[in-house]
Every structure is written in structure tokens, then in C-alpha cells.
Lab assay of single mutants.
Amino acid sequence: TTVEVQGVEYRFDNPEEAEKFAKKMAKSLNLRVELHGNKWRVE
């Protein structure tokens, strides 16, 4: 599972970890998070 934060990609073996990371990043950067296939995008 991939998390893309403002163009930078982070890879996770565990989808739940990816989701937690994406939501945490979105909250700290005041952005929103969307799931596209198996990629979380924070923008």
C-alpha cells in the first residue's frame, strides 16, 4: 500500500498502518486524504 503526501510516496506492507499514517499526515498538514485503488493520497 502506498501513501502519497504532496508528491512524496511512502510504502507500507500493512494497509492499516498506511491508513493510520495517511490520516495522521492529513491532520497535521491540514489536508484531506483520499483512497485511490491501493494508494492513499494526502492533498
Rank of each mutant, 00 (worst) to 15 (best):
L35K: 12
F12H: 01
R32G: 10
P15A: 12
R41K: 13
N14D: 14
R11H: 14
T1Y: 15
K39A: 09
G37M: 06
D13E: 12
V5D: 01
V3E: 00
E43N: 11
E9P: 07
P15C: 08
E34F: 13
Q6Y: 10
N38W: 04
K27G: 12
E4N: 09
M25D: 01
T1S: 11
W40C: 04
K39N: 09
N38G: 13
G7W: 03
Y10R: 03
A18R: 00
V42T: 04
R11N: 12
V8F: 08
A22V: 03
N14T: 12
R11M: 12
H36S: 10
T2V: 14
G7D: 04
E43L: 12
E9D: 06
K23I: 13
R41C: 15
E4F: 11
E9R: 06
E4G: 04
E17W: 05
W40S: 02
K39V: 15
V42C: 11
E4A: 09
K20E: 13
A26P: 00
M25W: 07
L31I: 05
Q6T: 07
G37Y: 04
Q6N: 10
E16N: 10
A22P: 00
A22N: 00
A22D: 00
E9G: 05
K20Y: 10
R11Q: 13
A18F: 01
E9H: 07
L35R: 12
N38A: 06
T2Q: 07
K24V: 11
V33T: 06
G7V: 02
E19P: 00
V33S: 06
K27C: 15
P15M: 08
R11Y: 14
L31H: 04
K27N: 14
E16D: 13
R11G: 06
V5I: 10
E43G: 15
A26C: 08
E9N: 07
E19F: 09
A18D: 00
V5T: 03
A26K: 01
W40H: 03
M25K: 05
F12G: 00
K39R: 13
E34I: 12
V33Y: 14
T1I: 12
V33R: 02
Y10K: 02
L35P: 03
V42H: 02
M25F: 04
A22H: 00
N38D: 11
T2C: 13
K24G: 11
L31C: 13
N14C: 14
E34C: 12
T2R: 07
A26L: 02
P15I: 05
E43H: 11
N14H: 09
F21H: 02
F21I: 01
E19Q: 06
E34V: 13
R11A: 10
T1R: 08
Y10H: 06
H36C: 14
F21W: 06
M25L: 10
K23L: 11
Y10V: 04
T1K: 06
R32S: 12
V33Q: 03
E16M: 11
G37A: 06
V3P: 00
E43D: 13
L29E: 04
E16Y: 12
F21Q: 01
T1D: 07
K23S: 05
V42Q: 03
L35V: 07
E19H: 06
F12N: 00
E16P: 04
N14R: 09
L31K: 05
E43V: 14
W40Q: 02
E17H: 07
L35N: 06
T2G: 04
F12P: 00
H36F: 12
R41D: 04
K24Y: 15
K24N: 13
D13F: 09
E17V: 08
K20L: 13
L31S: 08
E17C: 14
R41N: 06
V8P: 01
L29W: 03
P15K: 07
K23C: 14
P15H: 07
E16R: 11
D13C: 14
F21P: 00
G7S: 05
K20I: 12
K24I: 12
L31G: 15
V42P: 03
E4L: 13
A18E: 00
V5H: 05
V3S: 00
P15F: 10
V5G: 01
G37L: 07
V5W: 06
F21N: 01
T2E: 07
K20V: 11
W40E: 02
N14Y: 09
A26E: 03
M25E: 05
K39M: 11
S28C: 15
E34G: 07
K20F: 09
V8R: 10
V3N: 00
E19R: 07
S28F: 13
G7L: 03
F21D: 01
R32T: 12
E17D: 12
V5K: 01
D13Y: 07
V33P: 09
V8W: 06
E17L: 09
E43I: 13
G7I: 02
G37Q: 08
R11C: 15
V42K: 01
S28P: 04
V5P: 00
K23Y: 13
L35D: 03
K39Q: 09
F12A: 00
V42A: 04
D13P: 08
S28K: 15
A26I: 01
V3R: 00
R32W: 08
N14K: 09
R32H: 13
F12Y: 04
D13I: 08
A26R: 01
R11D: 08
R11E: 12
A22L: 03
E19Y: 10
E4R: 06
R41Y: 15
K39S: 10
N14E: 09
T1F: 15
F21C: 14
R11S: 10
F12R: 00
N30F: 05
N38Y: 05
R32L: 10
A18I: 00
K23T: 07
E17G: 04
A18C: 06
K24Q: 15
R41A: 07
K20G: 07
E4P: 00
V3C: 12
L35Y: 14
E19L: 09
A18M: 00
L31M: 14
N14S: 12
F21Y: 07
V3D: 01
K39T: 14
K23H: 13
V3F: 02
V8A: 07
A22F: 01
K39W: 04
E16F: 12
R32E: 08
Y10N: 02
F12W: 02
R32A: 11
L35E: 04
K39Y: 07
Y10T: 04
F12Q: 00
G37K: 05
A18Y: 00
K27L: 15
L29F: 04
A22I: 03
E16L: 12
M25G: 01
H36L: 12
E16S: 11
K27E: 15
E43S: 12
T1N: 10
V3K: 00
K24S: 13
M25R: 03
T2P: 04
G37V: 04
E9I: 13
V33L: 12
K24R: 12
H36G: 04
K20W: 08
N30V: 04
T2I: 15
E4S: 12
V5L: 09
V5R: 01
R41W: 11
S28D: 15
S28H: 14
A26F: 02
F21E: 01
E16A: 12
L31Y: 06
D13H: 09
N30G: 14
V8N: 06
M25N: 03
V5F: 08
V8M: 09
K39C: 14
K27S: 15
F21G: 00
G7H: 04
G37D: 10
V5A: 04
T2A: 08
H36T: 11
W40V: 03
E16V: 12
E4D: 11
K24W: 15
G7R: 03
S28G: 08
F21R: 00
A26N: 02
V42S: 03
L29R: 04
P15G: 08
P15L: 05
K39D: 05
K20A: 13
V42D: 04
V5N: 02
E4V: 14
T2D: 05
E9W: 06
V42W: 01
N30A: 06
L31T: 07
V3H: 00
A22M: 02
Q6L: 15
E16W: 12
V8Q: 07
N38S: 09
L35C: 11
K24H: 15
V33M: 11
E43T: 13
L29P: 03
N30K: 09
R41H: 11
E19K: 06
L31A: 14
A22T: 01
M25P: 00
K23R: 13
R11W: 14
H36Y: 11
W40P: 02
A26Y: 02
Q6A: 10
P15Q: 06
E19V: 05
G7N: 05
N38V: 05
M25T: 09
L35G: 04
N38R: 06
V42R: 00
E16T: 11
A22Q: 00
E34W: 13
T1H: 14
A26H: 02
G7E: 04
Q6R: 09
R11V: 13
V42F: 05
K24F: 15
V42I: 07
K27P: 01
P15R: 07
E9K: 06
N38F: 06
L29K: 04
E34L: 08
V8K: 12
K24L: 14
G37W: 03
V3L: 02
N38K: 07
K20S: 11
R11P: 07
K27R: 08
G37H: 06
V42M: 05
R41T: 13
R41S: 10
V33H: 05
E43W: 14
